[in-house]
Nucleic acid binder design. Structure first.
Lengths: 107, 107
DNA sequence: CTGATGTGCAACTCTGGTGTTGCACATGAG
DNA sequence: CTCATGTGCAACACCAGAGTTGCACATCAG
């Protein structure tokens, strides 16, 4: 899995407002199950499960099965990697624009 | 327009691979029209225009009408703001997880 | 064992977004 | 003026994704 794939997954995962809200709840609780999380959102448990599957594939959450329940928790690495990628991209754009501006002022 | 709205728009805009490719092309060329950009992507000009509209609404690009053509260029501010938001979120998660870990080790 | 709780799987609906095509309008080149 | 080029607008097709429902399976409590 390259860094680019991680970014792709994270961006796709964060595009959905429900998933961002889900991450908020998880970060607040530290640990939570799909059934518990469904109580804090206006959607069914199955919808939550699907979102958690997407978040897990993106590396944003991890799950641990304890008895008959599955507990989810946030995982900062992928989010941090995406933040760095985005900051680098913004800096690159800034650099390009500064160069264009400099050329324009000279010409 | 709050910072949260900016983040929402940027995340939604960056979720699409075609739009990310579009931003790459724009950053590389500095300036480009929808017709020109359509030559570098396997989609029609109209599709490009729609993507550019989304990117403009997200604050990621700006457009200037010159004669009969419309030139687009990247705009780093919104991207940079989103990068900072994401980095802060990742740091928050790290902080929470560190706290949980500390409590677990004590108890 | 029995009932209650939590999860997994599958089929289904439905909206939104992506992309297309066709045509009308505007502007630069000759 | 005339033609080519670039853009804008609108209607349409298409499909992935978000959400639902129903039921079967697994696990803890009594």
């Amino acid at each position: 899995m390259t860094g680019h794939d991680v970014v792709d997954g994270v961006l796709a995962a964060l595009a959905d407002p429900t998933r961002r809200r889900l991450l908020d709840l998880l970060a607040a609780h530290g640990q939570a199950t799909a059934t518990t999380l469904a109580g804090g959102l206006p959607v069914s448990r199955q919808a939550i499960v699907k979102h958690l599957t997407v978040l897990d594939a993106a590396g944003l959450v991890s799950s641990v099965k304890i008895g008959r329940e599955v507990r989810y928790g946030v995982r900062p690495e992928a989010l941090d990697a995406t933040a760095r990628w985005m900051a680098a991209l913004a800096a690159d754009w800034d650099r390009r624009l500064a160069k264009i501006k400099r050329i324009a002022e000279q010409g």
